[in-house]
């Protein structure tokens, strides 16, 4: 370890978490603004650098694997599934996933009903279960169209549903967050909970695709 022995070159080891992440390009105006905001808040003692680092790590620690574990458990444990559909917030808390600010509503796909999640007003998303939302979820096209022509939008994701399946769109406008409980694929009867987790993609928990069967 010799980080103190050379001092030439540019500053790659800036001591607090306000460093730019794209080394090859100058920072844009909003990156500068965000960086300035962070540094000012730290200088004023409103937040600390350690708190900010921990908050960023917390953002990073959420991923669709959390949601996939919930789904796989619901597929293998009927009593858990019943609790999950009755009170999503309490049921995911059993698995150590805390939803402090919002309530979780889990909506179940059946052979007659297919659920799709959107937030037409901003980008409300069950981040504690799925991590940060994908770009398309936040973009105009998905938010505008999925409430008005859901089948056409699902086709763009490669998802085709039978005409007689009823599509239920959920527009997350307020304090609820939604997670789709997909149907357990046929032919997975012998699979363990751990194996099932692998079949559950982020997108099938938003309702734009179906889970893989192998």
């Amino acid at each position: 370890m010799s980080e103190h022995t050379h001092d030439h070159g540019h500053d790659h080891d800036h001591p607090h978490p306000n460093q730019p992440d794209i080394d090859s390009e100058p920072m844009g105006y909003y990156q500068l603004m965000g960086s300035a905001l962070g540094e000012l808040l730290i200088e004023k003692g409103v937040i600390t650098a350690d708190e900010l680092r921990a908050a960023i790590e917390n953002v990073d620690s959420r991923s669709p694997e959390g949601g996939a574990k919930v789904v796989a458990k619901a597929w293998t444990d009927p009593e858990y599934k019943a609790r999950l559909l009755e009170n999503g917030t309490a049921a995911v808390d059993e698995l150590g996933i805390d939803m402090p600010a919002t309530h979780l509503v889990v909506v179940e796909n059946t052979d007659k009903v297919h659920n799709v999640i959107v937030c037409t007003l901003c980008s409300c998303y069950p981040r504690m279960l799925l991590g940060l939302p994908p770009d398309w979820y936040k973009a105009h096209a998905y938010r505008s169209r999925v409430v008005r022509e859901p089948r056409a939008v699902l086709k763009e994701f490669g998802t085709e549903l039978a005409d007689d399946v009823e599509i239920r769109v959920h527009d997350s406008t307020a304090d609820m967050r939604y997670l789709v409980l997909p149907r357990r694929p046929d032919g997975t009867e012998g699979m363990s909970e751990e194996e099932l987790v692998e079949l559950v993609s982020r997108d099938c928990m938003i309702g734009v695709t179906l889970p893989r069967s192998s």
């Binding site: 859901p150 005409d163 239920r168 769109v169 959920h170 406008t173 307020a174 304090d175």
Partner: peptide
């Protein structure tokens, strides 16, 4: 819960499709 065909005059998909919205 709203029936899509009652939300959009020109709704072209399944007439039983719905949209659920949280409203104060």
């Amino acid at each position: 819960r709203f029936l899509q065909k009652e939300v959009w005059d020109d709704y072209a998909e399944n007439p039983n499709d719905t949209v659920d919205i949280e409203i104060y």
